[in-house]
Design a protein around this nucleic acid. Sequence first.
DNA 1: CACTAGCTAGACCAGTCGGTCTAGTTGCGC
DNA 2: GCGCAACTAGACCGACTGGTCTAGCTAGTG
Lengths: 201, 201
Amino acid sequence: MAASKTRTKQSSTDSDMPDTRARILAAALRLFRKRGYHGAGLNDILELASAPKGSLYHHFPGGKEEIGVAVVAEITRSIVTLFESSRARTTAAVVLQAGEQMSHTIERTNHELCTLFTAFLAERSTSPKLGIAVANAYAEMTEALQTRLQSDGMKPRLAKDRATAVVMLLEGGAMIAQAQQSVAPFRLAVKQAASLCEIAD
Amino acid sequence: MAASKTRTKQSSTDSDMPDTRARILAAALRLFRKRGYHGAGLNDILELASAPKGSLYHHFPGGKEEIGVAVVAEITRSIVTLFESSRARTTAAVVLQAGEQMSHTIERTNHELCTLFTAFLAERSTSPKLGIAVANAYAEMTEALQTRLQSDGMKPRLAKDRATAVVMLLEGGAMIAQAQQSVAPFRLAVKQAASLCEIAD
DNA sequence: CACTAGCTAGACCAGTCGGTCTAGTTGCGC
DNA sequence: GCGCAACTAGACCGACTGGTCTAGCTAGTG
C-alpha cells in the first residue's frame, strides 16, 4: 500500500498505513510475543498485517526464520536504546525509568506482550540463527547495562554480574507478569533490579 | 521413573521399562523443555516414549493439552519438594542447595532442558488450562519460599516480595543459561537469589 | 509512449499437525 | 475355560503449516 524505506514514494493517502515490510514486522512482533514463535502462523501474521504472502517472501526471503531474527533484533535495539539514551544520572535511575516504560507497554497490551525472548529460545534446537539472535540479545542488553554501571564507578567484574542479574529479573518478571495477567510482578522486578544497581559491594 | 499408578501390574521383565503413562510423561517433559510446547509434536513424543497413539489417548484423553498440564504440574511438584524437603536451616541455604541440584540437571541435559514454564506460557491465549497451570506453578513455588522465609523471621510482606524475586531470578537465569549454553548464568542467579534471602530489611 | 524493477496478489503444494477410530492383545476375576 | 476391562497398536483423517510460483499491478525512467 503505502511506502518509503529509504526514499519516500508514498501516495497522499497512506497516513495510517506504513510500509508493508514494517507492517509485517509489527504484526509478527505482536503475534510472536502473544502466542510464541510456533504458535503464530504466517497466515495469522499476514492477516494482521493485511499483506499477501508474496510480499512477505519478497521482503523476507528467509521466511519465518528471518522474520523471527528481525523481530528479536528489533526488540533488542529498542531496549538497548532505552538503556543508553536515558539521561538519568545513575544506572539505578536508568533501570527505573526504562522499567516504567516497559510497564506501560505491558499494561497497554493487556499483559499479552510480556515475555521478551523466551518465545524464540525454544527454536534454538531447530534454528541456529534464532538461537544466536537470542543469545546476542541478552549479551547486548547486559553489555549496555554493564557499561553504565562501570561509568557509575562499579568494578567491571561486579558490574557484569549485576547487569546479568538485572536482565534475569526483568525477563523473569515479564514472564510472571504475563502468567498472572498483572504488571505488579514486573514492577517488583524493576524495583529489585534497580536496587541491585545501587548497592555496590 | 518407576511405575505403578495405584496398583502394580508390571510383568517380570519390565525392569528398564516403566509404565507407559510415565514413559509418555517423561518423553513429553524432555521434548517440551527442549523444543517448546508447539515445537514438540505428539509423534515425536510417542516415538521417544516408544508408545503408540492409542496409549496416549487412553492415558490422556485430553490430548496434548492434558499432557502439558501434567508436565507443568510435575515440574512444579519436583521444585516445591526441593524447597520444602531441604534440611538446610536458612532459606538462603535452601535456595543454594536446590540451585545446586538444578544446576546439575542443566549440565546433565546439555543445557537443553533449562527454561521451566516459559514454553507453556505462550499457550495461555489458546489454552486457558495451560495458562492456569503455569500461573499456579509460579504461585506454588513462591508460596513455598515465602513460608520458609517467614519461618526465618521475615515479615510476610517482604517475604513475599523476596520469594517472588527469587523465582524470577531462577526463571530468568535458566533462560539465559539455555541461550548461552552454559550453567554459569544460572549459578549466578542462584547466588543472587540466595543473597536476597539473607539480607532482611 | 514502451519498458522495466519493485512489489503485490493469492492459488497452490507437500508435509505435518493433533486427534479419532477400530482391531487386537493381555491379564485378572470368575 | 470364559468374559471383560484395561491397555496397546497403528492406520487414517481433515485442518493447517511454512513455503513456492506465476501473474499482474504500479511507478519511475528513457
